[in-house]
Amino acid sequence: MELDLKSRTAVVSGASMGIGRAIAKGLALEGVRVVAVARRKELLDKLAQEVKAEGGEVIPLIQDITAEDAAKKLAAAALAELGHVDILVNNAGGSRPLPVDAPDSAWDEAMSLNFTRYRQVTHALLPQMIARNWGRIINITGKSEPEGLNAAFAAKAAVHAWAKGLSREIGEHGITINSIPPGRIMSEQIRRNYPEDYRKRFAEEEIPVGYWGEPEDLAVLAIFLASPLARYITGTVIPVDGGLRRYQF
């Protein structure tokens, strides 16, 4: 399928590893000029070299997304590199399990990282998307079946609600916004936190397709949603989880 992405531009946060890396690489190999944002320079440089060898372009941008003024700096740097931004993939974030008596500061940090930065970066880049009458925003979020108290789950639920409301405001400008909650997708963190025997048993008992996903399994959906072909898909939450979730809608 021809996705008609050549000559488009994109910003992908959290792009040094896992899902963000797979999306950044996939977009670049479709002909998109990609600014890849993360904190680890050596990993971004390796990605850029790998993509260049395959005929694509990734521009590394070293940025700590947790900083207070990160959104403004990220938007300005991306626009300076690309001239304009057609596609934004909000992917930076992290799990934040908290005890019931966690201080407000812990909740504030989790909400800032997993919701507020998404909102700030998006709203910083929206005016130039509106001016060009085209844009794609993709949020990598989280599951809606928390097994305990985790501030990241609350933040990702906020992303879903914000994105749905925003989709109603920006649709007339040719801009779509969609959210993708990953299931059990293999990553550096997964390998560190879950032993192989646990992963095997969990896949057999809980995941209908029988295995944990790879970052590329999610990236293919993100890349499609970033394309002109996905013009009639907006305000949605589309899980990529091998059938793990049990709810019907």
Rank of each mutant, 00 (worst) to 15 (best):
G142M: 01
G242C: 13
I180H: 00
L47M: 15
D101I: 06
A48E: 11
V89P: 00
G93D: 06
E68V: 08
I140H: 00
Q49G: 15
I185F: 01
A124S: 04
A22M: 00
W134F: 13
G213T: 03
L43M: 14
A155N: 04
L43I: 13
Y118N: 11
H160W: 06
R231C: 04
I137E: 02
R201L: 11
P208N: 12
R33M: 04
G148K: 13
I233V: 15
I65P: 00
E147H: 03
E30P: 10
L166T: 11
M1S: 14
G174Q: 05
K46M: 14
H84Q: 13
E172I: 15
L5S: 03
L79D: 01
E2V: 05
V58F: 09
T141R: 00
G135Q: 05
A80G: 12
K46H: 14
S112P: 00
T176W: 04
A131D: 11
A28W: 04
V89R: 00
K200M: 07
A36G: 10
A80F: 04
I130N: 00
N139H: 11
R199P: 01
I62N: 05
I223E: 01
L149I: 14
G235K: 03
V209R: 09
A102V: 08
A161Q: 15
T9R: 06
Q128E: 14
E205Y: 04
